[in-house]
């Protein structure tokens, strides 16, 4: 009798959980405007807007993750009275940019470690070479440097909710890609929570690419290096000569 009751409770709980996941799964499509980012000659950073729907009791966390790279750094240390570059360090598999957008109302600092999200969680996936270096110190210094460039951020109160007409709720968030954004394949990861637990996570690719004259110059510099170098010199000489002539004529009048 007792076993039957326990089984019934388990089945009921499982049904509730499955229902929630199904609901969440139906509503994790994120609308991203604009759908991709073009870096043109006058690019000064740009806003993207993210929106979608959620279960009424759900929360969403959005991660904007830049292309993975192996970042090389000098480490400064003391040599007598001087601070000098003393060693090199490579941080493998680090995102160029990592921004975590969070809604308000929760104590995220306590919650994020258990959700395995946030800047601090990145540390687990990063390989530091040489391995003899202090992982904690290196990562903290790396994090500080990236934060100073506005490339690693955790922003609370940046996701806003409103009630949807057909039940559930709608979220909207705006993220500003900084002017130092590098082109590449970015990812926008949406994690849906219910009762502070992850019920769904979806990752959306987001392309940031150079366009127009910026793309042409970049391709020339990387694929026709010698021609590019000679062109740089010829144009510089031409501009220098023209400016010289302009000034000579101006002085003559």
């Amino acid at each position: 009798m007792l076993n039957k009751k326990i089984n019934a409770i388990f089945i009921a709980v499982a049904c509730i959980l499955c229902g929630s996941i199904a609901l969440a799964a139906e509503s994790t499509t994120i609308k991203i405007i604009p759908p991709k980012l073009g870096i043109g000659a006058f690019f000064a950073g740009e806003d993207i807007t993210l929106s979608g729907s959620l279960p009424s009791d759900g929360d969403i966390i959005i991660e904007v993750i830049g292309p993975q790279e192996n970042a090389k750094f000098n480490i400064k240390g003391r040599v007598g009275p001087f601070w000098m570059n003393r060693a090199k360090v490579v941080l493998q598999n680090v995102p160029f940019l990592y921004v975590l957008l969070l809604p308000g109302e929760k104590k995220w600092e306590q919650l994020l470690p258990s959700l395995e999200l946030g800047v601090q969680h990145l540390k687990q996936d990063i390989r530091i070479s040489p391995e003899s270096l202090d992982r904690e110190i290196i990562f903290e210094q790396f994090n500080q440097l990236k934060r100073s460039e506005h490339l690693y951020l955790q922003k609370e109160n940046t996701i806003h909710y409103s009630t949807a007409n057909q039940g559930g709720k709608i979220f909207t968030a705006t993220f500003h890609f900084p002017s130092s954004t590098a082109p590449g394949e970015y990812r926008i990861a949406a994690t849906i929570l219910q009762a502070d637990r992850i019920v769904k996570r979806s990752v959306h690719p987001f392309q940031v690419e150079e366009v127009g004259v910026i793309k042409t110059i970049h391709e020339l510099a990387y694929h026709q290096e010698l021609i590019y170098g000679i062109l740089c010199v010829v144009i510089a000489l031409f501009v220098g000569a023209v400016m010289g002539l302009v000034f000579v004529r101006a002085a003559a009048h």
């Binding site: 750094f73 000098n74 480490i75 400064k76 001087f82 601070w83 210094q141």
Partner: peptide, 15 residues
């Protein structure tokens, strides 16, 4: 710059 404690102990390689 050589004598004062740097703001960041890491600098980009080539810097």
């Amino acid at each position: 710059g050589l004598l004062l404690h740097p703001h960041f102990l890491l600098s980009y390689y080539g810097g």
